[in-house]
């Protein structure tokens, strides 16, 4: 049985326009849209036509090429941001039961531990990391933990800094955790407490921009989940190389559970743990 989806939407873009547009998006973001995503692309484009008062593709595209502000708006419209707290909890469990122990084996007490949530979307992931560490890592007061969160999308970063969420984003959290780390701001609206907002530093970074990536320094763990699937092979490789450069020797990268670094780049070693498979930059201190 199939649902009646109604008549197909009228094509907004010609073949050539669609190709030119996708090429432009690809060059700026590394995100690839094929013909199967045409509907999605056209819906977003129509929104941008409306916002900019453009009536044709030619008019909009000329504006896009002339105004960097519009490029940013477009990127914001095209990056998909829907996530929730404690998504892929097994990786957070892996962080506190395995990865951090290996990381601190080579560090003196009081040393920094740097964790990067990239992309962080609206902040659920970096705040989840902070909550998870507070709840599950007994050495949370021994090291100087720095959580950096970045995204290409400036609009979601503003939302992440504000830290206000609906019920859906909190669905995996116990009532107790919600009470401990959120304050109610309205019906079904919850704001993450100030201490946690203060524990995460937010910045705009494009995964395929090597210089922007390098500016953030080196990290012990990078969470880069469910974004490389939107990239094509070439961009994926560039992103993987940038992540590699962003890690200290022996540092870990956590991908989404459907993603595999082995298929993207030979730079990393597979690091198998009871809770999750993650990837590791070779080198650093080894134990066990």
């Amino acid at each position: 049985m199939s649902a009646d989806a109604g008549p197909p939407p009228e094509a907004v873009l010609s073949e050539e326009e669609f190709r030119r547009f996708c090429e432009f998006v690809y060059r700026r973001t590394g995100i690839v849209f094929t013909e199967t995503k045409r509907y999605f692309v056209e819906r977003r484009l129509l929104e941008r036509y409306a916002s900019t008062g453009s009536s044709t593709f030619a008019a909009y595209f000329a504006r896009l090429r002339a105004e960097s502000q519009e490029v940013e708006e477009l990127i914001n419209a095209f990056t998909i941001n829907e996530t929730y707290f404690f998504r892929e909890e097994h990786q957070l469990r892996c962080l506190t039961s395995s990865l951090l122990d290996e990381i601190v084996a080579g560090k003196a007490p009081g040393s920094p531990i740097r964790i990067w949530s990239n992309p962080c979307a609206t902040g659920e992931e970096p705040y989840s990391i902070a909550i998870w560490l507070l709840e599950n890592w007994p050495k949370v007061d021994v090291y100087d933990i720095e959580i950096v969160a970045s995204d290409i999308d400036t609009r979601v970063l503003d939302a992440a800094r504000a830290g206000i969420y609906g019920e859906r984003a909190l669905m995996r959290l116990s009532r107790d955790l919600v009470a401990r780390y959120f304050e109610t701001t309205g019906p079904g609206r919850y704001r993450i407490i100030k201490d946690l907002r203060g524990s995460v530093r937010f910045d705009t970074v494009n995964l395929i921009d090597a210089r922007a990536m390098a500016r953030q320094g080196r990290f012990d763990v990078v969470f880069c989940r469910n974004v490389l699937i939107y990239f094509d092979d070439a961009s994926r490789r560039v992103a993987a190389e940038n992540i590699y450069e962003s890690l200290v020797p022996g540092g870990f990268v956590c991908l989404g559970h459907t993603e595999s670094m082995s298929r993207i780049s030979p730079l990393f070693e597979v690091s198998r743990h009871a809770e999750a498979i993650v990837y590791r930059k070779p080198g650093g201190v080894r134990h066990g």
């Binding site: 949370v140 007061d141 100087d144 201490d195 946690l196 524990s199």
Partner: peptide
Amino acid sequence: DSSLVRRYYRA
């Protein structure tokens, strides 16, 4: 100086 530590102790 760590907001995570302050949160842990406060809780």
